[in-house]
């Protein structure tokens, strides 16, 4: 089980308090201008890297808020957690003062 630091509660909490919510930083295309390819990419295609992966979680059984998490998918080690709206930290760095692990 992962131990995830909630950047709002500022506590390390067990994974079962959270809900996974997929890849982070996806940008919804402009509905008026997007091509089929852009919609396809947004709706279905994912980076799915073996390595640092920016992803959303929701602290469902805690503060209820969405947060972002940078996790190494090869080792499941969490590199950083950070608040929604903050930029993705560089892999290996501790992000936003909310580092974990």
């Amino acid at each position: 089980m992962l131990l995830i630091r909630c950047p709002y509660c500022e506590m390390d909490r067990p994974e079962v308090e959270f809900r996974y919510a997929g890849e982070a930083h996806l940008k919804r295309p402009d509905p008026g201008a997007a091509t089929d390819a852009e919609w396809t990419d947004f709706l279905y295609f994912r980076a799915n890297p073996k390595g640092a992966h920016a992803e959303r979680w929701r602290h469902a059984a805690g503060c209820g808020r969405f947060l972002n998490c940078l996790r190494d998918t090869a080792s499941d080690r969490i590199l950083a957690t950070y608040r929604i709206g903050e930029p993705r930290p560089t892999a290996g760095q501790r992000g936003g003062g909310h580092a974990n692990g």
Binding site: G22, E23, F45, R46, K50, T73
Partner: peptide
């Protein structure tokens, strides 16, 4: 289990999560 990884070597993405 590694489809996205090999696809990335070839320069494209897949609608897959592992």
């Amino acid at each position: 289990g590694h489809s996205s990884v090999v696809a990335a070597m070839a320069g494209f993405r897949l609608p897959i999560e592992s």
